[in-house]
């Protein structure tokens, strides 16, 4: 399988009044064509920023982004325009990400117009209607406005708009978080079907672990801007080696009667990403933290085949 996206030591810092905010800090990963990489973490861990930096919606501070083998870390406006055709994004909020004054048909046709891909109005309309059919939007909604549709249908508009250019990579930033469970399942199935039919590659950003497990091939867990664990999706749900991942997965309330109560309750809350020092960023909340954890930063190392963990004491904690 060909590697489609690779990021190396990618960082994004924001200057704030109180200091440097380390939103993304030294993230390295690669994704193969047609696969899904799930990026999981809690609010403020930098997962959305990561997706946006890859699409150049934010400019990176340092590091490399390679797309189809080509270094796209620094691109001019013209190149970026060409690039965006292959890299699209589906946003979290189907209410805020659609122009309320445009009809469904016009919203989906906008990218075609932007890239001058159709010769006539008729051709564009035909393409839009085809796309609407693919994502399951009824033809009669063509002339409606977003406010006339429910959240699930709006999210389908967002998907149609992202896919009409036939992109290779789609960043899905919490695409189902705003939807009800029964609708969430419909949209997830649609995304997976589209991936199969069109060979799409997804970067799937979410805080919902059961959703990410369902859709991803590989999963990366982020904490305060850094990757703390990365493995194949089923593997990470079988074995979690990082104390944070352990707590995160144990915290999911299981919809079962008499589910065993073996939750690890973390103390405290996510610490500030501003002016972080040389330490393990999870140390303050970690039940296993030792003095060393507060002084030196651990490295991401391979503990079993293709399973990476960033923890000084991963061997001791897991009894390797």
């Amino acid at each position: 399988m060909a590697e489609i996206l690779r990021v190396e030591e990618l960082t994004k810092y924001f200057n704030t009044k109180s200091g440097l905010l380390h939103a993304v800090d030294g993230v390295t990963f690669s994704v193969e064509e047609g696969k899904t990489l799930g990026i999981v973490g809690e609010s403020g861990c930098g997962k959305s920023t990561l997706g946006r930096v890859i699409l150049h919606l934010h400019e990176r501070t340092s590091g490399k982004i390679l797309f189809n083998g080509e270094d796209i870390s620094e691109v001019n406006a013209q190149k970026l325009h060409a690039l965006r055709k292959d890299m699209q994004i589906i946003f979290q909020d189907p209410y805020a990400s659609l122009n309320p004054r445009m009809t469904v048909g016009n919203i989906i046709a906008e990218p075609l117009k932007n890239y001058k891909l159709t010769k006539s109005k008729e051709e564009s309309e035909k393409k839009v209607r085809e796309m609407m059919d693919i994502v399951g939007l009824a033809d009669r909604t063509y002339n409606l406005y977003p406010h006339e549709l429910d959240g699930g249908r709006r999210q389908r508009i967002g998907i149609a708009r992202a896919l009409i250019l036939d992109p290779k990579l789609v960043v899905c930033d919490e695409p189902v978080s705003a939807l009800d469970v029964s609708i969430q399942a419909q949209v997830l199935n649609l995304l997976m079907e589209l991936q199969k039919d069109r060979g799409l590659t997804y970067l799937f950003i979410t805080h919902n672990l059961s959703v990410v497990k369902h859709i991803s091939d590989d999963i990366t867990v982020m904490y305060l801007g850094q990757m703390v664990e990365k493995a194949e999706s089923n593997e990470i749900f079988r074995h979690q080696y990082h104390p944070y991942t352990k707590a995160l997965i144990s915290a999911i309330p299981v919809p079962k009667y008499n589910a065993p109560d073996n939750q690890i309750i973390l103390k405290g809350e996510i610490t500030s990403p501003i002016n972080v020092g040389k330490s393990c960023r999870f140390a303050a909340r970690c039940p296993y933290a030792k003095e060393n954890c507060f002084n030196t930063e651990p490295v991401l190392e391979e503990v079993t085949k293709d399973h990476f963990v960033k923890c000084h004491y991963v061997k001791e904690i897991n009894g390797f």
Binding site: S210, V211, V254
Partner: peptide, 15 residues
């Protein structure tokens, strides 16, 4: 319609 965290499923059953 809930994705099952304990088992592997390919497609979600939807309402």
């Amino acid at each position: 319609s809930l994705p099952d965290i304990e088992h592997e499923t390919s497609e979600l059953k939807v309402i």
